[in-house]
Design a binder for these strands. Structure first.
Lengths: 333, 333
DNA sequence: TTCAATTGCTAGATCGTTCTAGATTGCTCC
DNA sequence: GGAGCAATCTAGAACGATCTAGCAATTGAA
């Protein structure tokens, strides 16, 4: 049972193929310097022995791991989508991904250090809450790319989606439907919440509308709580901090007997899997996980390989119209 | 900008403290064989230089990484809860966790191999879909613990929750409320779906009731689709494969004008964060992520350290009664 | 024919640790 | 005062890969 047998090494393969260690090494990493015939012979021997290069020895010597470190939060479904997309893009670029979760009882510092220990050549941090000092310290060791947050100082790359543009899209969509009394249920202290709140205020004022804001947060419960304070403000539309917040707001509206979208329109943010559920059909601002992930991986890899200079990508979100927004009710428009 | 300076090594610390490499090594891993005074001196020097042992070199030599490999699915929120709990328990046992996600476009084999490359000393696979052959092959290299699935053959440990007991609890809860026409919306081809379906059938028959089953799946959409076929069967209660399925079923009921729980009671499975949302309050079978995670980590660590024999833990689920179950309507009871 | 360049391969050093075996010191005990 | 022993420390060989330098054989050009 579970006969722990030593895994084969370069030496074993070399012996089996009748060549030197160095040649096997050359063949295994596809480097030039071996004839086609021996290359075949070596690969065959390796295959037969089930040889797989030892990552730690390899990187100890070469200082290359082809590993991208990625942190994410277990409680944000949108992060999960990014994780999937990062895997795909990294794999396309020939990199592997080391994952580390940030959650209750596991601080981001801890997550990051475990990624560094694993030998990550760059870090991609999703919605990091580290301060500039800490970021700078890590950036001192490897390239760091901040994803979904762009106020990160001068030592860290960032890839984010234009929050102001997203809020603007939402407001334009709603005003074009005749809404004028629009409320923003904000993200409280969450990453990006400040930007979206500020953008909402500026844009509403630009439209000559009152920038009504309720403090919320990134979860359903936050939306639910805000929803209970919502009706007193008599809104015809709500822009929520994210999809989860929107779900909470909608539930609150529903339990108060208001219909979405005939009484109140709701716009979410993230276009996460929730928004797409057939019975929710939430109109939402899409940040396109695929695109963001690809940009982050590309930045990380560019920094690692080409010594590309540090920079900040800002992509433009778009609005996905579904079933939770409609023309403003005549009485309130 | 990002002055990539070489990270300090044992040699640097040894030099700074005026001792040999070996002694620094002894101090760093807390091994006996150094006097208290030099221990202090070395630690001080290490601290000043910001020295952190190089994990790869360490494990290359020692064949110890103190790393547990963990796979999970990005799309199952219950897995996220387990991930959090595994981190906590592993940390308590002095181990770190290497995470690898299984998702669209990332096969479980790929995830597992990346964990092995990272040097995992054991693997914990959440709801693995690997066949016994593959499992055996991996178990040949390191201890493997299957979590949430127990039909895994003789070479793999397992930690699972008694599916039959869970279904029994749900049925007993419902029958005690007077329900007799209970439908199981199953998990289709998902892990554990077979066990739960079989348990449902056996237990219902044991109660002298008809074991009505609809084919479903592990997501909201599956529950929604099943929900549409549900009403024709005129049930007074539904036991869903998991919480996400239950959400879909409830939505379907709601859109058909049925009230939960006055018209139809619904029981979920997993007691995930959804079930606990204040506006959902789903009665659910709890598998206790904390407990499962702790058991899995303990098994893995026991196998690694004490060469404990392989075994299978089966924990007992419990029912968390919330707001989606009530007495059967008189007309249909 | 001879010399240089190219191709195909290998020996040995090296990465940063841990481990084994042995050296050095200081102490106790007879 | 020397044997015996524990405590403290160190030198040097691992671990499994990559990398550098160089050796042999072949090719091409003069």
């Amino acid at each position: 049972m579970t006969q722990e047998q030593r895994r084969p090494t370069l030496v074993d393969v070399a012996h089996a193929a009748g060549v030197s260690r160095a040649l096997v090494s050359i063949v295994m990493r596809g480097a030039p310097g071996a004839s086609e015939s021996t290359r075949q012979r070596v690969l065959e021997a390796a295959g037969e022995l089930g040889y797989r290069p030892d990552a730690r020895a390899r990187l100890l010597r070469s200082n290359r791991t082809r590993l991208l470190g990625l942190t994410f939060s277990t409680s944000q479904p949108f992060h999960s989508e990014i994780v999937d997309a990062v895997y795909a893009q990294a794999s396309a670029k020939g990199y592997d991904v080391a994952l580390s979760a940030v959650g209750r009882g596991r601080a981001e510092e801890r997550a990051v250090e475990s990624l560094l220990d694993a030998g990550s050549e760059a870090l991609i941090l999703i919605a990091s809450t580290l301060n500039e000092n800490d970021l700078g310290r890590y950036a001192h060791q490897v390239p760091v790319v901040s994803l979904l947050r762009n106020d990160v100082g001068d030592h860290v790359d960032s890839v984010s989606c234009d929050d102001a543009a997203g809020i603007r899209l939402a407001i334009e969509h709603l005003t074009s439907l005749g809404h004028r009394r629009i409320i923003h249920v904000d993200g409280g202290t969450a990453v990006s919440a400040d930007q979206r709140r500020a953008a909402f205020r500026a844009e509403m004022i630009g439209h000559g509308l009152e920038p009504l804001t309720l403090s919320g947060g990134p979860s359903e419960e936050d939306g639910l709580a805000a929803g209970q304070r919502l009706l007193a403000l008599n809104p015809s539309a709500v822009i929520a901090f994210n999809d989860r917040t929107a779900l909470g707001v909608m539930e609150s509206l529903r339990s108060a007997g208001r219909n979405v979208p005939t009484d109140v329109s709701v716009v979410g943010y993230d276009d996460s899997q929730f928004a797409r559920l057939s019975y929710i059909q939430l109109t939402s601002i899409s940040q396109d996980a695929q695109l963001l992930a690809a940009a982050a991986v590309n930045r990380a890899v560019d920094r690692i390989e080409n010594r590309q200079p540090l920079g900040h990508d800002v992509s433009t979100p778009h609005l996905v119209r579904r079933a939770t927004t409609a023309a403003a009710p005549v009485s309130r428009a």
